[in-house]
Amino acid sequence: MECITASSVIRNSTVYRNGEVVFTTGAGAPAEFLLSVYQFLNLQYPKFYKMDSLSRLGWIASEVLLGEGWDRAAYKPEEVAIVLANASSSLDTDYKYIATTKDIPSPSVFVYTLPNIVMGEICIRNNFKGENAFFLSESFDAGLIWQYVSLLLGGGIARACIAGWVELLGEDYTAALFLVEQNSSSGAPIFSPENMNRIFNASTTGHAD
C-alpha cells in the first residue's frame, strides 16, 4: 500500500514538515522569505542563488521533505519520480524575462520560463533520474496528482515519488510536497486525495497536525 511517508508545506511565511512548524517569520516578500529559510536551514548549495523564485520554493520544499531519515539508498536513481503541478506555470519569471528584453534578453532568466525546471533542479540535487510530469490546474487538484502517481507506482514505473504543488506568482506562494512510497514506516498516512488535502489545508487554518 502506498503511503505519504513525509510531507512539507511552505506558505504564509511558515515552513512545515510532517505538519510541524520548522520555521516561521514575519510576513515578507517571497524572495526575502525564501532566502531566510535557506539561511535558517543552513543549506549549502550555491546553485540556489541562480534559481528563480519558483525553483527556490520547490527546491527548499524538497530539501525539507527529504531532509532527515529518508533511506534514499533504497532506490536507484531511475526509480524516483517527480510529479508536480501549479496554476501559474512560470508566469512570475515570464514577466521578469520580458522586462530583460527591453534591454538585453537574459538567457539565465529565460531558462526558468518553464515550470518543469524546478523538477530539473530537484533531480540535479538528488540525482533522481526517473519519471517527471508537470501539470497545470486552476487550484490544487489532489485527485489528479493521486491518479497519476498511482499509475506510476502501481504500474511499477517508479518506486518512490515526490509529488505535490509548487505555485508562485508575485507575492503569493504555496508549496506542498508529499513523499509517496510503498508502506515502509508504520503510522504513515495512506496516499489518498483526502490525506493530501488534509495536509495541504491544515497549514491554512493554523491547526497543523
Binding site: 517527480i82 531558462v111 533531480c123 540535479i124 533522481f128 519519471e131 517527471n132
Partner: peptide, 19 residues
C-alpha cells in the same frame, strides 16, 4: 512510452545520453 530526467543540467543535455 516512458519519461526520464538527466539530473545533469537545466539547459544542457546529458553528456552521455544514458538517460
Amino acid at each position: 512510452g516512458a519519461v526520464s530526467n538527466d539530473a545533469n543540467h537545466i539547459s544542457g543535455p546529458s553528456r552521455t545520453g544514458e538517460e
